[in-house]
Computed example of a mutant assay.
Amino acid sequence: MIPVYQPYLTGQEKNYVNQCLDSTWISSKGEFISRFENEFAKYIGVKKATSVNNGTVAIHLALEALGLKVGDEVIVPALTYIASVNTIIQTGATPVYVDSLPGSWQVDPADIARKINERTRAVMVVHLYGLPCDMDPIVELCKKHNLLLIEDCAEAFGSFYKDQHVGTFGDIATFSFFGNKTITTGEGGMVVSNNSELIDRAFHLKNQGVSKEREYWHDIVAYNYRMTNICAAIGLAQLEKADEILYKKRQIASWYESGLAGLPVSFHSEMKNTRHSFWMCSIAVNNSGDRNPLREYLRQEGIETRPVFHLVNAMPHCHTSDIFPIAEAISASGINLPSYPALSENEVI
């Protein structure tokens, strides 16, 4: 079976993990944590970063650091992974869903504008499958209405909008390092911001609210969201190979785009002013009725695929009666294809 994804562990991962084992620093203290955080911040061009134990808690921590609460509304795409919305609900805030754009599959800025009201506190954008959202109009909307801007970059490490890495446009942003992400720590995530006070607050919250001045004194309700030194060691090794990984993934995308030309499908291509990281190489079949038969055929041929996410507002605990025709069409027709860095041209074609 050709899998949809597998990690690319060809660098210093084993060496760095063994250094953790030899030093006995295997939990949430050790040199690799700060090294990974600092190098990650430098790589994407942001002032501050703090690591966490997975991408979902990264979003929750970011929202808590911003102070979102009951009565606040957060605008979020209907077409996204469930973590984007679960974490909004966990803060007590209310998610307000918006539609997508047909070409990019990203959130529609015009629909964001339509959903803003006096209860709106924040906008969360999700750079879905590694293609950046159209950030200029979204940033302008947030400035105009004095709204917080959160970037969910779980799938978008290595993605750029107008030569600026995603995660650097808003008040705060999050990344995921799950095993199928472009760079991985096994499980892990990162919260980043150019606002040092926000990252200090996030650090306080992720460390059980422990006081800086008084040992074992905890002054707020908080969490244990810390990354381990072992995970950070893997992450640092992955970051050292990031350019190679991203190059290979773009190469795979070019093979797909060329090989699929002329077929009744559309490829999730790079758009103007963007650099797609191709976390997933994705297609949409012209006729949604062909999606499941095509996936079954590929499965029988030993090729794993994934369907594009269901709309979040269709889930029982997030349900609304709103209709999002573009997002629904993408969800019904989209397929994620194998896109791991070790994939060969022969396997793609």
Rank of each mutant, 00 (worst) to 15 (best):
Q238M: 12
A329V: 01
R121F: 08
P316A: 14
A58C: 06
F267L: 02
N273A: 03
G92R: 08
I59G: 11
R201F: 07
S321N: 10
A41L: 13
L246V: 08
D99A: 02
A222R: 00
T320Y: 10
H204Q: 09
I230D: 03
L9Q: 14
S104P: 00
A332K: 08
E64D: 01
Q106W: 02
G170H: 11
I82F: 11
T185N: 08
L66Q: 04
A41G: 15
T50N: 09
F36Q: 11
V221D: 12
G92P: 06
L63C: 04
L141H: 03
S51I: 07
G158L: 09
Q300T: 12
I112C: 04
F324P: 00
S266R: 05
I138A: 15
G289K: 11
E347V: 09
C133I: 10
D290I: 12
L61C: 06
E31Q: 05
K47C: 09
N18S: 00
M280D: 13
F203A: 12
T87S: 04
S339F: 03
I2Q: 15
A232P: 15
N292R: 08
V4Y: 04
R214I: 14
A154G: 06
T305N: 12
F267S: 04
E345P: 07
T94K: 06
I59V: 10
N207C: 10
V192F: 02
L148I: 13
G103K: 04
A154E: 05
W279L: 07
E64A: 05
V74K: 03
F40P: 02
S339C: 14
E37L: 04
N224H: 15
F309C: 12
A110V: 01
V192A: 04
G209C: 03
Y161H: 12
L205G: 07
R114V: 14
